[in-house]
Design a protein around this nucleic acid. Structure first.
Lengths: 242, 242
DNA sequence: CGCTACTTTGATATTTTTCAATCTTGGTGG
DNA sequence: CCACCAAGATTGAAAAATATCAAAGTAGCG
């Protein structure tokens, strides 16, 4: 029993990524093997952070890479104008800690209470060099993120605010915990301001777009942080109408 | 002599990327060693394509990865609305051919006459598995692209068209061939429509933004495809004012 | 040297941002 | 357990910017 408990917690979460090579229909399979997760857990530290904790700041020395086990994290940049642009929201099985020349490119902050694995960059490098297969999986994961970033860039370019928000809700639904998500309720743990920063809109526009989706009977906001999809067909149509 | 000719051409171009680990000040160093370039050239084919050649189409089977040796390529997606969103422009020492489940995610087309190396994906996989160091360099390169994509997403989110175009010109200048670029002339080989697709603007807005930059004395368009930077300070200020 | 594709320019319509005021809600402490 | 407070969210009206529609102008290529 003790052993099963240990095997349940003493592993980094398996990563989530669609491979670039053709594979078995299973597109959303966990990327890492149990053995690899254990190896990573060995060099890492498990952290529990409360909501709103700043994980690292832009331009600070990048010593670690992080893997999300539970909760949601945002990666963002403060712009000279005072706005904050949100580069990504990170969910369980995501990796973050993008660095350039040994410095973090973004800041990262916990949105909810989170559980993270903190992996020292230098030890990770050694591990990757020893384990070509593991390294290949990191390559797959980063490639997956690159696609996601490009896709988001395209979707965000659309002019209409309601369409952007619809796209965002659809995106968030993909990350929703199937177990919790009984019907069609999509948790949106971030603030409207965060959503605005991600979509490149003012927060007022996000608020108005939410009101519009609700008025049109496509989505019902049961609370600020929980959206219920009422008309999946029209939502999909809105998302596709780029 | 034959031999030196061979060594000059029978190699894939060295990749360009800023590493994530801290390194020697040399931030823009060629990524690949001569040996690695030869290895890659061995499995690849060198292609010369004329301007406007379609290299591959979105959703087609992704058999190859490409490396740009000369010229400029655009990677884009056709949207249901009929617009084309440009994901990236690829320059010498760039890699392209992003795939998902064995299918290309974007379409790619030559903008100028180009020289490419076409690398078969399956042979490349084998090579990467054998050469952990080479694989690591691919990881660095993809990570570099991910940063570039995120950065672009942030810059494109700014509202003002003139600022976006200024940012674009500054970006293109980074890729300009130093040898050719005597003064401050920046080649813009793509059409206004391509620029619009990249910046998320209508092509009329791009045209007007260009007129505005010219009116303000920041940039002079010596031709449609050649911009001369007149006031580097104010250009930089515009770019930074995100 | 003419055609065709690409650009520019103008006027109007649409949309979002901005500024300002008000409303909610989750958390805190009495 | 309830009231209060402050951060976050909503709503309204006006201003600013880009998209769109339309027409005319350029220039590169065969």
């Amino acid at each position: 029993m003790k052993r099963s408990f240990a095997s349940a917690v003493a592993k980094v979460p398996p990563l989530r990524a669609v491979p670039f090579l053709k594979s078995i229909p299973q597109t959303d399979a966990p990327l890492l093997t149990d053995r690899q997760r254990e190896e990573l857990a060995r060099i890492g530290v498990r952290l529990r952070l409360s909501a709103r904790t700043l994980i690292y700041r832009e331009d600070s020395a990048a010593q670690w890479v992080f893997a999300v086990a539970e909760g949601v994290v945002k990666s963002y940049r403060e712009l000279p104008s005072g706005k904050r642009a949100v580069s990504a929201f990170l969910f369980p099985r995501d990796l973050f800690g993008l660095a350039e020349n040994g410095r973090y490119v973004n800041s990262a902050q916990a949105i909810t209470r989170v559980t993270l694995y903190r992996l020292p960059m230098n030890e990770l490098s050694v591990l990757l060099k020893h384990d070509g297969d593991l390294q290949f999986k990191f390559l797959v994961k980063v490639t997956h993120e690159l696609r996601a970033s490009q896709r988001r860039a395209i979707l965000v370019n659309r002019r209409d605010a309601a369409g952007r928000l619809a796209m965002f809700i659809a995106l968030m639904e993909e990350h929703a915990d199937r177990a919790v998500e009984d019907g069609r309720a999509v948790p949106l743990p971030m603030t409207r301001s965060d959503v605005a920063g991600f979509l490149g809109l003012s927060l007022e526009s996000v608020s108005r777009a939410a009101a519009e989706l609700e008025r049109r009977g496509i989505v019902k906001f049961e609370s600020r942080h929980l959206a219920r999809i009422l008309d999946r067909v029209r939502l999909a149509r809105l998302v596709a109408a780029v």
